[in-house]
Amino acid sequence: MNRCGLGRWAQKHQWQFFASAVIWIVILIPAQVMQSRMASAFQNDGTIPQRYWMLSRIWAIAGSIAAILPFTVLYFMVFKPQ
């Protein structure tokens, strides 16, 4: 254990929480805001721009990664491999 009371497994996997947060702050939230603005614009027009679908793919990929990272930490919290 270190002075913060974290075991070695927790020290090794803290970066996964940090990476997940960075993905949310840098990629997912801005993409979601852009998509929301686009959706408001094409609500009246009816045509969905290609950029919207590109952001949707980016959101799906980055969102999956951002969700998987904490689940791997959960795995290590439960099973605590040496």
Rank of each mutant, 00 (worst) to 15 (best):
F42T: 10
R8G: 11
T72C: 02
G63C: 04
P30N: 03
A60I: 06
T72M: 02
R57F: 08
N2P: 00
M54N: 11
G7A: 05
W24R: 06
N2H: 03
I29C: 07
W53K: 13
M38Y: 04
A41D: 15
S56Q: 12
G7D: 02
V73R: 04
Q35P: 09
I27G: 04
W59L: 10
V22K: 05
F79R: 13
V33G: 05
P30R: 06
P70K: 04
L69H: 11
A60D: 08
V33R: 01
G46I: 01
W59I: 11
H13Q: 07
D45R: 01
M1N: 03
L55E: 03
K12Y: 03
W24Y: 08
M77H: 15
A39M: 13
N44G: 02
A39E: 15
G46E: 08
M77K: 12
I25T: 06
L6K: 06
S56G: 13
S20M: 01
Q50E: 14
I61H: 11
S56P: 07
I29L: 12
S64F: 13
M1L: 00
A60Y: 09
Q35K: 15
M34N: 01
A62K: 07
Y75K: 15
W9Y: 07
S64Y: 10
I65W: 01
S36Q: 10
Y75E: 07
F42E: 14
G63F: 00
L6C: 08
I48H: 06
L28R: 09
P81W: 04
Q50G: 07
M1E: 01
A31F: 02
Q32N: 09
V73Q: 04
A19F: 13
Q82T: 03
A21E: 04
F17E: 04
F79E: 14
I65G: 02
R57I: 08
N2E: 00
Q35D: 13
T72F: 00
M38L: 05
Q43G: 04
L28Y: 08
Q50C: 07
Y52W: 02
A41S: 13
A41L: 12
L74G: 14
I68Y: 04
A41P: 07
W15L: 10
S64N: 13
G46Y: 10
Q32R: 11
A67F: 15
M34F: 03
V73I: 10
A66G: 14
V78W: 00
G5C: 02
L55K: 03
H13F: 00
F18N: 14
L69S: 13
Q14N: 00
A66D: 11
A67H: 09
S64R: 09
S20W: 05
A39W: 12
